[in-house]
């Protein structure tokens, strides 16, 4: 996507975030005014700094959007156009191989972080993850990478050796505990 379109969309997202933060901060200021804190003065309320930050975000996001729309004849219609383009671009992305590979990779990392770690003993989980990841990258992933260093045997070996090195380094030398 074009740089300016990205900026516009990003600006919109930030605007939403900033507004949310500002609103939540106002609520916080209200909550802090009640017992047990009974903070009535705005300047010492815990909600002050988040409120300032939220408002700054809103301001900066508007500046960002304005900057990205600068120089155009009819800014509002350009703005609406860009939002539409970005939606269609997002849908198109799923057809893009690169994007799909990245998505699958991220999902694999997600599974590892949320389900494997902590539930499956570290060494086993690590080897499994590494092999799966490397196999995916070699076979199912992007084309055009050199096949020389990535056959299955090398993959398994690398996974085993690196997982073992990590366990050795952290558990025996640094004396820490792995999940």
């Amino acid at each position: 996507m074009d740089e300016k379109i990205k900026d516009t969309v990003f600006g919109v997202v930030l605007f939403a975030l900033g507004s949310y933060v500002a609103a939540e901060s106002v609520l916080m200021i209200g909550r802090a005014a009640n017992p047990p804190l009974r903070i009535r003065q705005l300047s010492v309320s815990p909600g002050l700094f988040p409120l300032v930050l939220g408002l700054l975000l809103v301001l900066f996001s508007v500046l960002l959007i304005a900057g990205s729309l600068k120089g155009n004849e009819k800014p509002l219609s350009v703005f609406a156009d860009r939002l539409k383009t970005s939606f269609s671009a997002m849908r198109a992305a799923f057809g893009n191989n690169d994007f799909l590979s990245m998505l699958i990779g991220v999902v694999m990392m997600f599974v590892y972080c949320f389900f494997v770690v902590g539930n499956i003993p570290f060494w086993g989980g690590a080897v499994g993850f590494l092999v799966a990841m490397m196999v995916f990258l070699r076979f199912a992933g992007p084309a055009g990478c050199s096949a020389r260093a990535a056959n299955l045997g090398v993959i398994v070996l690398t996974a085993l050796v690196s997982a073992s090195l990590v366990v050795f380094l952290f558990e025996k030398i640094f004396k820490t505990v792995l999940p």
């Binding site: 570290f122 070996l157 085993l160 997982a163 073992s164 004396k175």
Partner: peptide
């Protein structure tokens, strides 16, 4: 060679599973 490496790797991976406290850092 692969077997040797494998067994080496496995030996490093034995976590401390005994029930005696303390068996790791507190």
């Amino acid at each position: 060679r692969t077997l040797a490496l494998l067994s080496l790797a496995v030996s490093f991976a034995c976590p401390a599973w005994s029930a005696d406290w303390p068996n790791r850092n507190i």
